[in-house]
Design a protein around this nucleic acid. Structure first.
Lengths: 344, 344
DNA sequence: CCTTGGCACTCAACCATCAGGAGTGCTAAT
DNA sequence: ATTAGCACTCCTGATGGTTGAGTGCCAAGG
């Protein structure tokens, strides 16, 4: 059964009130706040219906009603009118992300921080996948007697390094030769391809220099793996003073879960397809510690949609969050971050 | 006035009981627990004296007594007998830090984690100062049209990189030449010296290539500065379920302070001189958010005392912590970490 | 049929009261 | 100097009544 126009209005008003105050909303309050000229009794009838249909729930007999996650979902899908970003927020965003900063890390960090600051919730930025990186340059340096430092550089400017122990001392000349070989054979080729090649070629080889190459290959693998997992999070502590979560146990779990990041990363990667803001409200995330929270995420695109690189960012907060403002904020941040990382 | 032998014993017993249970200790309890054959009334007299002298305090009229930070200080200085590390803990330490891992970051991380795990408190490791690093190698790579990636490597295997925008496109040959010049002029020289030199030489120059060198110099400066501030912290959340801090406000402050790290770093650097475990109990740290906490820290030495490198590590927890076990644990971790980082 | 006032009912929150227990300080006797 | 005894304080938990917000249902009125 389709919902009554009036019922929709009341639901909307109820959720807005609850978002604003955080307390359950009663019929008297709602009747007044909704601006319709109807009595609390009528409102009660409507509320009872909404409860039957799963949009509302009553914490206990004599305490108004609060939205369920189904209610919130209906609210954001059908009732919510997103407001444009406030000028101050927009200014701040531009100021922090609007101009070119060459260091990727720094930009990602700035984005995480600004999300957390403006929303007073936990902000996160998933480090973009760079599956299509190509190898730009490799160096092998002899640091001490039997230690070689391998340095990998990709065309995107990612640099990764690792110390490798060797069984015999290797001369600078030998290492140079190996690096040259590496650069000539693999320079400019996709990292993934490089690794596959190496994996085949070095299968049985036992030569010392090949051991170095193999270690180097492992390093390359790490580079691909690592950013599979990386995610910046800022402002988790803001979650500490959300009254709805304040009760001990769940909060600990949540913070730990956020710290672990693993499942979170999973959840978010699924939301990377598509180019719109996405919401996970309460249980919708299918991830227990987040049952009381909502996640608002948006993918961002670096260097064009086709060959480009994708990432996700967003915020984690209570279900009761001001979606009208949070959504455009997350959206705007995603656009700006994408642009900041794209500029050549 | 020197403290009575019996008073000392009672103070010791009281603090031990309080550390074990977390609740204020009354005269009856204490009389029983101390093993002396005296009545609660006598104990009360002694306790009253100890309170007058500032070692104890009574939360309210009819609730036993708890130690003040002065009491704890006297306890650890004069009464505490440190027990040797438990075999299990020792095993775990050895397992996690006992063998050589070439990657410094990884070792530091492992140490932080193991501190937090074994103590159930927040563990931290201050990244060692490497003021005496020398420059090992420099690379300049043209990534895109007008972007140069500068890579610095020190003799200790630290690698740092930064993207530099240039006004004109520079050829690979030009960059190579610059890098060669750099490596030949400065390779093997202390980083600090390199920077000073560059600062003098590049003062007025406006040539594009010199701009790159100047950017490179700034990168070098960052390398020196950065690890001035760096510190790893793990397990802050463990502090969440300390009943004594559970009360909201202070905890938020503490977590934020820990997050900021700045003042903490200050505090710890002061404790780096000397080679022993050091304790800051409650207000002693002179750092408000830590008023309810104790910090147990120990310096660690990498590559020998004279030319070596110094760092600090330790834990942050409630004043009421089992010092007898925490102290040797922090001490042991410091030794092992020092050794793990020293092995060639 | 929808709306509304009325009414009985429920329940959390607040408050006061009370008993019990732990602990203290003081005093007087040993 | 030690200790038993005692009066006193204060926290804690249980009990119970009151209040106020809110509900559900019903019956009357548009």
């Amino acid at each position: 059964m389709a919902m009554d126009e009036r019922a929709r209005h009341l639901l909307k008003s109820l959720i807005e009130q609850h978002i604003a105050n955080g307390v359950p909303v009663g019929s008297r309050q709602l009747a007044k706040g909704a601006g319709l000229n109807i009595s609390p009794a009528t409102v009660r009838n409507v509320m009872a219906d909404l409860e039957d249909e799963g949009y509302l729930i009553s914490p206990h007999t004599s305490a108004g009603r609060i939205p369920t996650h189904v209610g919130y979902r209906f609210f954001v899908d059908a009732l919510l009118r997103v407001v444009p970003l406030s000028p101050e927020s927009h200014q701040l965003l531009i100021h922090r992300l609007g101009h070119y900063i060459p260091d990727t890390e720094q930009v990602l960090h700035a984005a995480t921080e600004v999300l957390s600051e403006l929303t007073h919730m936990a902000g996160f930025v998933r480090v973009p996948r760079r599956a299509n990186r190509t190898l730009r340059h490799v160096d092998f340096l002899a640091l001490r007697e039997k230690e070689v430092l391998a340095i990998f550089v990709t065309d995107k400017g990612d640099v990764e390094n690792r110390l490798i122990r060797t069984e015999h001392a290797l001369s600078a000349a030998e290492l140079n030769q190996a690096a040259n070989f590496f650069n000539e054979s693999y320079g400019g080729r996709p990292l993934q391809e490089v690794i596959q090649h190496l994996q085949r070629d070095l299968q049985q080889s036992r030569h010392e220099m090949d051991r170095i190459l193999r270690s180097a290959m492992e390093l390359g693998e790490e580079m691909l793996e690592e950013d599979q997992q990386r995610m910046l999070i800022e402002g988790e502590f803001q979650l500490l003073d959300l009254p709805e979560l304040a009760g001990s146990e769940r909060l600990r779990e949540l913070l730990n879960a956020v710290r672990q990041k693993r499942d979170l990363v999973h959840l978010l990667d699924s939301s990377m397809r598509g180019s719109e803001v996405r919401l996970f409200i309460g249980e919708e995330s299918g991830f227990a510690p987040l049952s009381d929270c909502s996640v608002v995420s948006a993918p961002y695109v670096v260097d064009g949609e086709v060959l480009g690189v994708l990432g996700v960012l967003g915020v984690i907060g209570p279900m009761r969050m001001p979606y009208q403002q949070i959504i455009p904020l997350v959206d705007g941040t995603a656009h700006l971050l994408g642009r900041a990382l794209s500029q050549s």
